[in-house]
Design a binder for these strands. Structure first.
Lengths: 349, 349
DNA sequence: GTGAAAGCGCTAACAC
DNA sequence: GTGTTAGCGCTTTCAC
């Protein structure tokens, strides 16, 4: 048949269809300047020959590669998985392919990957939980290279991004605990180099202050979003003079650690201590007691970001905007009134 | 500086370093025929100019693309996530990039993707939980296109594959239940078009027969590996004349459904009914009671498969082999002796 | 409307 | 050892 490796190229199609290969290219790219009959004939030939375009060649010749790059910090948590699901389901509807990169939480790799991808590999980039986007957003924007940031706030720059209202979520969760009657509320932060972590801490503090409850430094433990932090933070809280009656972990993973620590201390949830998380990962509703937490619309964030990127890809100068999706407090079984309040109730009347 | 879009090519590097661009190509490909000094000079120039190879062009020109394709059924379960983690961590050590495709459980898409990828996009393909590999393994093998199957058994063909000992795992789990004293053990199957599902069912049946316990058809429910199947299967079991004292679900997702159903019926685990799963997904140890399950070394499977692929990639005619990793019964809190046995204990002595 | 020709950035075969 | 050359499969002028 053909030279080697039964690879079908536009040349093969062209010969078979009795046209020049330039015309075949036009058909592929839906160019208007092709006679309908010719187009029809070429398309049939392509099908008959099982022709598939070579995207490398397409991209190299100056076209699009139809590949978008996805940069994530890691694959360890269900958190990222949810976002990827959203991206994937949206991408499946288009005909873009996905190139996945993991920075393994190494901030320094980030910019390197981004530039390498932007140079020629992909048509656009999606960045989940970027560590230091300032390193490259400027350059990317200058080159007019399409990209969207997912779950990142904090850069003053206005670049395309989708996130969740972390501040509001943390505020609401804290306020809910206060309304239950809690006054001593321990807070375990995420990595404070991440905007989301800062916003959550901020929401907690503001809620406390709004209700005139002092924010005490020994009730704030600095974590990194990893499960063990929840454990050690809790241990530390349990050792302060007047331990908290509720603990708010900046994500569900750490909340799991909190739960373990409380249990290991022979205390009961929510009777002795209430626990609240953030994210609403699939496990949250599965653990017993089911975890009260702040739900982030992760999958939807992935979806939206992808839609934005696709839009930028087609309409080159659509202005960048930042979308913030609402978070939602999911009240389940790990939170209750503090014992003191329960006792009061019985005594006072 | 250069023509357009400040893209640095080998030509730029060549001019800067005063060599021909062929030499630069040699340096890139670690060709031996380059004088050490020249190599050094070229490498420095590449760094100074921030040069990055264009992989599209590399692949097009007949070289490798340094991209491997990963085909997964979907991203919904932690199951696939674990495998991907293994793949990713192994790939990070090499300098291959990852292209991710989701078939969304559409078996028909599988072969299409595979051929499209194999045509030119990637150097090798990793297939997780393939639905009907027979459609393409033959062709791929004939073309000598590198690929590895993950978590699939059943094709008589001997193609490179890594899986887990599903049969043995199911046998052991069932036997464990029998030894606890259970005789009526409900079994919920996975999608029986998957080799793994068949093997697990088989392991269950064999264990029962080995211990001379009849395999009853109303204690076998045909599921699809999805959580709701666990729920409906359990409801059905609970309605048979003599309900099972233990339920073995073919994966942890379905086991979660089983747990819900049992709870909704006001029964306790493991007191009234023991539950056992398969896979040991992260949630398994997190739910209460912690789920007894058969652990599959998912991450390791991903790792191993990747190593195999990389090996095939470098050593073109390494003979294909199939690796089967051992499964391991993780005994936790969702299994116990059946009530009857517990009662007997107290009465007989 | 269609064909011909010039690259895109690179590898690999062949010279010297 | 290093330079030269011919493609890889495609897009995109520019002719006609």
């Amino acid at each position: 048949m053909n030279k080697r490796q039964n690879k079908i190229t536009i040349v093969d199609v062209a010969t078979e269809a009795n046209v020049s290969f330039g015309t075949v290219s036009r058909v592929i790219n839906n160019d208007i300047h092709v006679k309908p009959e010719t187009r029809e004939r070429v398309q049939q030939t392509m099908e008959r020959l099982n022709y598939v375009v070579n995207r490398q060649a397409q991209k190299l010749a100056g076209g699009r590669s139809n590949v978008i790059g996805l940069l994530v910090p890691d694959l360890g948590t269900g958190y990222i998985g949810e976002i990827i699901r959203g991206i994937d389901s949206e991408l499946t509807l288009s005909d873009y392919d996905l190139m996945l990169y993991t920075t393994h939480r190494t901030a320094s790799k980030e910019a390197g990957y981004v530039f390498s991808l932007a140079q020629d590999m992909v048509d656009g980039i999606l960045l989940v939980l970027p560590r230091n986007p300032v390193d490259y957003t400027g350059t990317l924007a200058k080159k007019k290279f399409p990209f969207v940031l997912i779950d990142h706030q904090g850069t003053g720059k206005d670049c395309p991004a989708v996130g969740a209202s972390n501040w509001q979520g943390a505020f609401n969760a804290t306020d809910y605990l206060i309304q239950l009657g809690h006054k001593r509320i321990g807070f375990i932060t995420g990595s404070l180099d991440l905007g989301a972590a800062i916003d959550r801490l901020d929401g907690y503090k503001t809620a406390m202050r709004t209700r005139h409850i002092p924010v005490e430094s020994d009730l704030i433990y600095e974590g990194t979003f990893a499960q063990p932090d929840g454990y050690t933070g809790t241990i530390q809280f349990l050792n302060v003079e007047q331990p908290p009656t509720a603990i708010f972990a900046s994500n569900d993973c750490m909340a799991m650690g909190v739960i373990d620590a409380i249990r290991d201390h022979g205390l009961k949830i929510p009777d002795d201590i209430s626990v609240i998380g953030f994210d609403d990962i699939p496990q949250a509703s599965l653990v017993r007691p089911a975890l009260t937490t702040v739900q982030q619309p992760l999958e939807q964030m992935g979806r939206l970001a992808t839609q934005m990127l696709l839009e930028i890809l087609t309409d080159t100068d659509s202005k960048p905007h930042r979308i913030e999706l609402p978070t939602q407090l999911m009240i389940r079984d790990s939170t209750a009134k503090p014992k003191a309040v329960q006792a009061n109730r019985e005594v006072i009347p």
